[in-house]
């Protein structure tokens, strides 16, 4: 498998040159970051070039890197998992939104139709806008929902809760009455931790 991926890695470098970032081969998977301005051209070529032939977009999702340990860079990215049935290989492409406050990336819906709902989902959950998407509605959250819940600054408990009000005889929204509770704190250990050097 890895020889095949190295071939794909070389193929990517030969085909796109400096139009894409440096391909990263890790854990038997190939990841490529693509600058936002080249995104559509590269995506189209990835699908149509007979040497690459990524016919399927299996998944597209947003990610918010703002709290990633030791990370400095653009906050939002749209990440796609591509699959080629002809060559039987996979590729992950990442495109970072240039503006953190109003993240916009191009829509690949016309290249891979399956991107339709995935991009709606990334818009709904992360607030990433996909330019060129014809039907960018919310998809998973409630009708009339405010905010983008998968951003790292959105609390796990949310802001509003819903209940039936017996006096008004209807369902109402009110501010949440529960507080987020953390049982196990999030910990990142130093690299030498548990390596048996007598300190951990």
């Amino acid at each position: 498998m890895s020889a095949k991926l190295e071939r794909l890695c070389r193929q990517m470098k030969d085909t796109f040159g400096d139009r894409i970032g440096e391909p990263v081969l890790a854990l038997g998977e190939l990841t490529v970051a693509i600058p936002a301005e080249n995104y559509l051209d590269v995506a189209l070529q990835l699908r149509d070039d007979p040497a690459l032939r990524f016919e399927q977009l299996m998944d597209l999702s947003g990610i918010d890197y703002s709290e990633y340990t030791g990370y400095q860079g653009k906050r939002f990215a749209a990440v796609s998992q591509l699959l080629s049935i002809t060559h039987n290989w996979r590729l992950r492409i990442k495109v970072f939104a240039p503006d953190d406050d109003f993240p916009v990336v191009a829509s690949v819906m016309d290249i891979w139709n399956s991107a339709n709902w995935y991009e709606r989902e990334a818009f709904d959950l992360f607030g990433i806008h996909f330019e060129g998407h014809v039907d960018l509605r919310r998809i998973l959250t409630d009708y009339g929902f405010v905010g983008h819940p998968f951003r790292k600054d959105f609390p796990i408990s949310g802001y509003v809760e819903m209940r039936y009000d017996p006096e008004q005889k209807r369902v109402i929204y009110q501010p949440v009455t529960i507080e987020p509770r953390e049982v196990t704190p999030r910990i990142v250990r130093e690299e030498t931790y548990g390596k048996g050097n007598g300190r951990g």
């Binding site: 990633y68 030791g70 998992q81 999030r186 910990i187 990142v188």
Partner: peptide, 11 residues
Amino acid sequence: GVWAVSDGANK
């Protein structure tokens, strides 16, 4: 498919 991203933490 599961796409898992870790930054080295316990979560």
